[in-house]
Design a protein around this nucleic acid. Structure first.
Lengths: 350, 350
DNA sequence: TTGTAGGCGTTATCAG
DNA sequence: CTGATAACGCCTACAA
């Protein structure tokens, strides 16, 4: 390993001077500076990050806590966060964590000096990881949000607005009977996960306020169950003409399921995805109309908020909610005539 | 930050003794040991990783280089690698890298003392990142493989065997006319990416050896192109009865595309996915038959190989290829009668 | 503008 | 079994 000492020796200067040019900490004469740069280059010197962290008490690492248990597509978040981190010369480290020991492990990241701050995703409404981070005085920002948001930096999807928009858009096409599909997470470590809970509530309120009819279908992400969804849906709620799906898997499966039941999309039933993150929804036939999750933007904003805080630039906490953006597919149409009869094979309806 | 010094003071021992119990480096009397443990607990002490790395010249971090540019699903690799790393008390850090500066950045990881070793994925046939790692004497293992494999630790999918198996399985059902779909990567940073190249070659050899007919379709991962694939395929190769797809996106799109053209799966055409990594292939109708990528296993083996090497346990390099495992869906059937006529709307076939 | 030297929190060697 | 103490590589007052 090439050290500063060796560089200093070769450039005939003191180790401090090398440090000054490496970090731009203090002015150095162009000629000595040049000598040092050459020495660095010739020796292939790289600053040792452990020593640097130890001496400066700053790691320039922010950890992005990375849940390992689910199939959600977090790629976009990461991309956004990584870009912003790089821009500020921070390293973004994805910290894969199993939910078991998550709570304690996370604060340790900071206390052990491994990272300066934490980006937390898959936040639950009541999230003890957040409490731990607060207690430990660890700088953090959330992608998602808890119930109690006092003083915390967060960015999140505006599920409420997105849901209302979806309902309104469909209502404008004559739809009156809605179904919402959300992932069933009870019994999993994500039981208290905000997005489905907030969305369901927003959905129910929107339906109620507008005098519509709406049903909620919670589905576990099990291939068999997801594939049986179309049958279940029409069996239980035969008047439904508009489906809002917060599960990409369910959305994709519904297309095949409806087709098999002889239900046409969008002639008989319209489908829209919300908070969609998977590119596969655009590949089925018909391609789905979706409200896409602004993943990259959220990742970027969260990283920015955290780094601002780390560098003491913070004032009031960053608290933003961004609605999903409409992506036109071909799965939405006018509501069918109210007298349409959906004839479903009774044998299939349960 | 709580330090060893504070723990030592509280437990009335020297700092060295604390170190011994924290690391299990040397035997310590049960009673003093107990006192120290209590002090650690009461103070909430966490070893500082930077100091530790500096003093021991070991970071116990292995970096998993994480490409940011594509849609491939790497979740499984990561899960496997993380599990093994944790088991050996290594931290697995995902290192998101943009391909631009990838080559130099990677070796720096080691030279800067940030990580002990590197796990590299998305390996190209001629990969200068690998050469850099070798030159820098940086310990590494590949998930994937280059052309020149002398002395390198790698794990990879056995694309050749998987491809031959797929062909054989379909041939046994009477299929004689094949198409292979691979992702077109020319012009991208992944132009020299091994999997499609090896698969294509294995496919062509298998077809030739068995006296079959086979065509290769390279498709860019652009939603429009992928959706138009069924039309293109049948337009160009109307006799095809068996499609082997190495692109999950294409596989999913084909199901819808064929249906729209009035082609039945599997009555008219059989489809199998190979090296499949996306759960969405099981959600379309009919669910696809796939040869699933052993992602988790590969991640685990690669991490194991790297850690063995790091700990000096290495002998001959680990070099393994694992074939994909068959996942039964409903997209494969007997070849249709040879006199079947596929009538394709000429307007659609361009 | 540059050099000196103390310290960051651990590890690890060497005495005791 | 335990304690001093010299590294580890770098940063940063403080001096020169």
């Amino acid at each position: 390993m090439v050290t500063m000492k060796q560089v200093a020796k070769r450039a005939q200067v003191s180790i401090a001077t090398v440090s000054f040019v490496v970090n731009g900490t203090k002015p150095v004469l162009p000629e000595t500076r040049q000598r040092i740069l050459e020495a660095i280059d010739e020796l292939g010197y790289r600053p040792n990050s452990a020593a640097r962290t130890l001496a400066s008490r700053k790691s320039r690492i922010v950890a992005l806590i990375y849940p390992l248990l689910d199939q959600h597509n977090h790629h976009a978040f990461i991309e956004g966060a990584a870009a912003v981190a790089a821009q500020h010369e921070y390293s973004l480290v994805l910290w894969p964590i199993h939910s078991d020991n998550a709570t304690t492990e996370i604060a340790s990241l900071i206390q052990a000096g491994f990272a300066d701050g934490v980006l937390l995703m898959e936040v639950q409404l009541e999230d003890e990881r957040v409490r731990h981070l607060q207690q430990a005085q660890a700088p953090f920002a959330l992608i998602g949000r808890t119930n109690d948001l006092r003083g915390v930096d967060y960015v999140d999807i505006d599920f409420e607005l997105t849901t209302r928009t979806a309902v309104d858009d469909l209502m404008a096409l004559g739809h009156r009977d809605f179904a919402l599909i959300v992932e069933e997470l009870s019994g999993t470590p994500l039981a208290d996960y905000g997005p489905p809970l907030r969305t369901q509530q927003a959905f129910e309120e929107a339906i109620h306020e507008r005098g519509l009819t709406g049903h909620v279908l919670r589905v576990r992400h099990d291939a068999g169950l997801v594939r049986g969804l179309a049958t279940e849906l029409l069996g239980r709620f035969h008047d439904t003409t508009a489906v809002i799906s917060m599960s990409d898997a369910a959305s994709v499966a519904l297309v095949g399921g409806f087709r098999e039941l002889g239900i046409r999309i969008p002639d008989d039933v319209s489908i829209v995805g919300i908070a969609t993150a998977s590119p596969f929804t655009a590949l089925v036939d018909p391609p789905l109309t979706t409200y896409d999750a602004p993943g990259e933007q959220l990742g970027a904003l969260a990283a920015q908020a955290l780094i601002d805080r780390l560098e003491g630039r913070g004032g009031a906490p960053t608290q933003v909610r961004i609605p999903c953006s409409l992506h036109h597919g071909a799965s939405v149409g006018q509501a069918p005539s109210p007298h349409r009869q959906l004839v479903v094979n009774p044998g299939l309806t349960r």
